[in-house]
Simulated scan of single mutants.
Amino acid sequence: TKEVNDKFLDTMLGFAGGVMIAASFWSLLAPAIEHSQNHFIGEWFPPAVGFLLGGLFIYAFDQMIPHAHRNAPEDRMEGWRAKKKRRSTLLVF
């Protein structure tokens, strides 16, 4: 459809976020904690560092990639070189 109900979109984005959090824990963090049980620093430290570095990586790319948020005016685009308004390099969410 061309128009999506905002409440439905928010619900689906929340569900997808919950699924990704569960998948990241059960597929990445839990095995990392298990594999680092005998680590000299502690079993929680290597997975925590990896988790924080991953979060910083995502934050950095969110700041760099030109994008506009849904229902936001075009002059409120974010990211590097967002003022050029080149549609070929613009991600719209």
Rank of each mutant, 00 (worst) to 15 (best):
G18A: 07
G18I: 05
M20V: 08
I21L: 12
I21D: 06
A22K: 04
S24K: 09
S24F: 15
F25V: 10
F25G: 07
F25D: 08
W26C: 15
W26R: 13
S27M: 15
S27E: 13
L28G: 14
L28Y: 13
L28M: 14
L29T: 13
L29I: 14
A30L: 15
P31L: 08
P31C: 06
A32R: 12
I33S: 12
I33R: 05
E34F: 15
H35W: 14
H35M: 12
S36C: 10
Q37G: 08
Q37V: 10
N38E: 09
N38G: 04
H39M: 11
F40D: 13
F40W: 10
F40C: 14
F40H: 13
F40Y: 12
G42F: 06
G42H: 05
E43P: 14
E43D: 14
W44R: 11
F45M: 13
F45K: 13
P46Y: 03
P47W: 05
A48P: 12
A48F: 07
A48C: 11
V49Y: 07
G50N: 09
G50I: 10
F51L: 15
F51K: 13
L52R: 10
L52W: 10
L53R: 06
G54H: 04
G55T: 11
L56R: 08
L56D: 02
L56E: 04
F57V: 07
I58Y: 02
I58S: 02
Y59V: 10
Y59W: 11
A60W: 09
D62G: 00
Q63H: 06
Q63E: 03
I65Q: 04
P66R: 00
A68K: 06
A68D: 07
A68R: 04
A68H: 03
H69R: 06
R70P: 00
R70N: 00
N71G: 07
A72T: 00
A72Q: 03
A72C: 05
A72W: 10
P73C: 02
P73T: 01
E74R: 05
E74S: 03
D75E: 08
D75A: 06
D75C: 08
D75L: 04
R76H: 09
M77N: 12
M77Y: 12
M77I: 11
E78Q: 03
E78R: 04
